[in-house]
Each structure stands twice: as structure tokens, then as C-alpha cells.
């Protein structure tokens, strides 16, 4: 399956809070970032966790977030970042 996003794309993490086993941490939900790497495809952990095969595999990305966009009270300089591994189905494209 081909990757929907490319390095440099502006993306936003879906703001969704389903229960269950999810590898998208709470602190990036609804936050905007930039794709910094396309890692490859991996079985979906939300399915694997329940004994299912996790297919179709999902593309996994590095998404780089400015720390100041994650935490309104961030104390460090504006160039500080957090890089999180995010699966494609958690990302939506964002116009810049």
C-alpha cells in the first residue's frame, strides 16, 4: 500500500479518543505537525493487540511537532521539537 503523505507534508492528528489499545499518545491528538520521515508499513497495533493479524498494514510516519504547539506553557525555545511515530489512519492532511 502506498503512503498517503510525503516528507514535508503538513498533517494533523485526528482528535479522537476511542477506548482500546492505541499507540497514538493523548498529547498529540488534534495537534499539527510535519511529516519528517516515511518509516514503512507495519501491522496495525489496534488489531494486533486483540490477537488479529493487523492487516492491511498501515504506513508509519515520523511526525515532528513544535513543542510550543503541544504545550501552551512550553518553557524552552521555539525550535524545540517532539518526534512521534504515528500510523497513517491517525493523520489528516492540513493546508498550510
Amino acid at each position: 500500500m502506498s503512503a498517503r503523505f510525503a516528507v514535508g507534508d503538513n498533517v494533523r492528528v485526528r482528535e479522537a479518543y476511542p477506548p482500546g489499545h492505541i499507540r497514538t499518545p493523548h498529547f498529540i491528538r488534534g495537534k499539527a505537525g510535519v511529516v519528517s520521515a516515511v518509516i514503512g508499513t507495519f501491522a496495525n497495533p489496534e488489531e494486533l493487540a486483540y490477537g488479529r493479524p493487523g492487516t492491511p498494514k498501515q504506513t508509519l510516519y515520523w511526525v515532528t511537532f513544535p513543542q510550543t504547539g503541544l504545550w501552551p506553557d512550553y518553557a524552552g525555545p521555539e525550535h524545540d521539537t517532539a518526534v512521534v511515530d504515528v500510523f497513517e489512519h491517525w493523520l489528516v492532511g492540513e493546508q498550510q
Binding site: 497495533p45 494486533l48 493487540a49 486483540y50 490477537g51
Partner: peptide, 11 residues
């Protein structure tokens, strides 16, 4: 058993 099953069980 997958790592995600381990994680789910811990959560």
C-alpha cells in the same frame, strides 16, 4: 503472542 497483546494486557 505479540508485543501489542502484552501491552494491551498491561493497560
Amino acid at each position: 503472542m505479540s508485543v501489542d497483546e502484552l501491552r494491551r494486557g498491561i493497560e
